[in-house]
Amino acid sequence: MTKILSIKDLHVDVGNTSIVNGLNLDISSGETHAIMGPNGSGKSTLAKTIAGHPDYKIRSGTIMYRDHDLNDLSIEERSNLGVFLGFQYPIEIPGLSNTAFLKAAINAKRKYHNLGDLSASDFLVDLKEKSRMMDIEQKFLSRGVNEGFSGGEKKRNEILQMLMLEPVLSILDETDSGLDIDSMKVVASGVNAFRNENTASLIITHYERLLNYITPDYVHVFHNGAIIKTGDIQLARDLEEKGYEWLTNP
């Protein structure tokens, strides 16, 4: 078991507002962590900070990803080294087909690691299998990235991208919001297929529902930009029953 992510006393500002305040979190390979918390507690800020979004400034503290200080790496380097962010609101890119986009992403990563382009046939075989697994029809793949996709299709497409890019650390930002129960099961099966002893997941969610299908090793409760309680799946169940009030306002 090796350490994949190590966050020490992290403070993050957006504009002049401090959103993350003194966060500590360690994630090792093979682990799945869930972060829960009320709206505005800083969960999505954490996800975007790890991915390197330019609007989120680290005021102090460090995020180590394996041997790298993430602050030294560009957005695309983080990705090419295995950090994946499943977006809460996946972006549409009209006219650029999902297939072309995925191929560009995979080949960018391969280039970063000094590998040649993936052969078209290997790529298509892999894509066919994984899109079937995520219940995405072939015709969707030739449409523009997320163009005209329903909420559920967009989220399943995020998981498809994750499976295709084979990251080490997958951060899923409210991937369950707006999903019906069937789509949620499909998303969960994708995430479970990704779990193995070499990878790690950080799942950000409001609700316990998704965690019934993806059992996390740890559940953290986020409040005012820091973790105020850590437990296991039982903590998520308690939250579902009692709300956040008993923790945030004892």
Binding site: A51, P54, S79, F87, I93, F101, A105, A108, Q161
Partner: peptide, 15 residues
């Protein structure tokens, strides 16, 4: 949009 660029770059693609 900046968010389109961020999305692509998060997938490893240069700006």
């Amino acid at each position: 949009a900046d968010e389109q660029l961020f999305y692509c770059m998060q997938r490893g693609i240069s700006e």
